[in-house]
Design a protein around this nucleic acid. Structure first.
Lengths: 342, 342
DNA sequence: TTGAAAGCGCTAACAA
DNA sequence: TTGTTAGCGCTTTCAA
């Protein structure tokens, strides 16, 4: 049997209460006693039973996903996975929720974050574009004792917070490689479509894309990124325009995670079957596109994995545990017709 | 607060013990009482606290992975992921172990399974080729009260056991599509290399492969599958031989999950850079091959996901819970140089 | 600065 | 067929 706090107390020659105080780093214990307990922990190889601790504390882990208010397809998937995970995780004493906030104004996001406290929530998975306001609000949230991880948006380099999501530069590079290889040495232009180039995500995707395309496929030249601002009408206009002005377009890279407007516009303004089209994320629309030949490949991050990874990280933070980092890397998935599965 | 067994007992007008008996389906309760308790459960929306139950029972979930004794690369990965998961899962009261057994003799596998009982293990994730002996042994294991899921090998169609792994026919189809698209309409032959064609996995991969290749790439013709029996020497011989007899080989599909022998042989007997090579699974050798250009794409199942999914399924079986099936689908990953990540 | 004792939600003898 | 009670490993008053 694994040693318990009782064994530990006996070994250290102190009471259960003192053991508990040491284990939880509570004050009011003599330094010497602390050392004695720690020595005993080493000696008998004590490991805490967190379930029992949570039971005694009556503790639940309450995690909140902060998501953008706009965007229906990919975000719908994400919300569905959160709800799904919530079902399964209830067993383990975790409660997930999600809250929507418009991404148009950083102040609004910061304001929303400032309303959250440790009384309501133990951790937040924050999907929001980088900005000083949000950064500050997140830091203050952390100070108030609410754990934070960044989700999908924001920078992945180790900063103040863990990051859950794909490496966007590699994602862009992957898109370029697929476009290049699928295209078979035909010369021409490549259209790049983004919602906005103000977000770090888009910039990094573009950077990775250009790097591979210019180095390995000099016969392909990528046009300047088109910005759609998520507006279907504008999307159609810019796409119609670029196709009118460039007769030799051979490929399209749809960079934004909501690909529907661009795919719809392409279908209306051209014959996408004759173009190599690479888009992001698996949604009902991109799935259809793949099946119909409108799109040739998708670059995706699995929303289920995103959710579970965020939860594992938040949980680890709450318990003051470390995680196996390699287990939390979100893979850049390449999806074609054949490996869609289900 | 969530209602507890106490609330439930009060509501149903019975004692805690009776509530417990009903919750656990134990005998010795009048039908009428059972109904009363069930009604109360509905009424107050009672959900069981499994952690508390496990604590009271002193229960640990002990899961055993049964793996083939041979195979170093992919299996090494798998074992590493099991050990890794074991670290993290200890917190939740689960203990993972793995046991190796030679795949050469179905009787030996069956024999090994027959030694396992509910005293040692609560669930088994079984990786073994299909055979009547193994099937029987697994069924008897289940009867003895040990939960079983099939891992990687075996049939994925809903049978007596859950299956954790990729759809092999789709995997083969994916390989063919990549070979076809990467090859750019050059005519020629495709070499297919397997460990053995006696395993269902290989047959299904080949089936999916041929389906796509013959339908969509008639200018490519796949040669009969070469069997290596996992022997490096033989591997080299058959590959040297096939290359000698076919001047117009343009692509290679390495079907087995241990790709190293075939990759090594290809490197020795040809210029793999000029061939389109698709292999299975991400290992140190296939990773190198991707980076060096020896291989153009990998079809992979993520060993970490395999392990965690198997654990979730076994755990759900133990608790008599249902799982979200869509969450347990193992994706067929396409890996190229750019999306290797880490 | 320390300890004794009650209790978290559930299970399992034992008694009735 | 049902209930009483002690206890799982840990936390948390309250008292010393």
């Amino acid at each position: 049997m694994r040693p318990t706090t009782k064994d530990l107390a006996k070994e250290a020659g102190v009471s259960l209460a003192t053991v508990d105080r040491v284990l939880n780093g509570r004050p009011g214990v003599r330094n010497k006693t602390v050392e004695a307990v720690n020595a005993a922990i080493e000696k008998i190889g004590f490991v805490r039973n967190l379930s029992a601790a949570n039971l005694a504390k009556g503790k639940q882990y309450r995690f909140r996903f902060m998501l953008p208010a706009h965007g229906d397809q990919f975000l719908g998937e994400l919300r569905a996975r959160i709800d799904e995970a919530n079902q399964g995780l209830g067993v383990e004493g975790m409660v997930l929720s999600h809250q929507e906030v418009s991404h148009s104004d950083p102040h609004l996001i910061a304001e929303t974050l400032s309303q959250i406290g440790p009384d309501k929530v133990d951790g937040v998975a924050l999907m929001a574009p980088e900005s000083p306001q949000v950064r500050d609000a997140a830091l203050r949230l952390k100070e108030r004792g609410v754990h934070v991880v960044h989700l999908i948006s924001g920078k992945q380099q180790a900063g103040d917070f863990d990051f859950v999501g794909i490496d966007n530069q590699s994602a862009g590079a992957t898109a370029a490689r697929l476009l290049g290889r699928f295209n078979c040495r035909k010369e021409g232009k490549v259209v790049v479509i983004a919602e906005t180039m103000n977000a770090r995500d888009s910039l990094e995707r573009r950077k990775g894309f250009d790097m591979v395309l210019t180095r390995d496929y000099p016969h392909l030249s990528a046009l300047p990124s088109l910005e759609t601002y998520g507006d279907p009408r504008r999307t159609r206009d810019v796409i119609a325009n670029v196709l009118r002005n460039n007769a030799d377009v051979v490929g399209v890279y749809i960079m934004s995670s909501e690909a529907k407007p661009a795919l719809d516009a392409l279908a209306a303004e051209s014959d996408p079957q004759s173009l190599i089209v690479v888009a992001h994320e698996l949604t009902s629309r991109t799935r259809d596109a793949l099946m119909s030949g409108e799109a040739d490949a998708l670059i995706a991050q699995n929303p289920g994995h995103l959710v579970r990874s965020a939860v594992r990280l938040l949980r680890a933070h709450c318990d003051n545990r470390s995680v196996v980092k390699s287990q939390e890397v979100i893979r850049i998935e390449i999806l074609i017709k054949e490996n869609l599965s289900v």
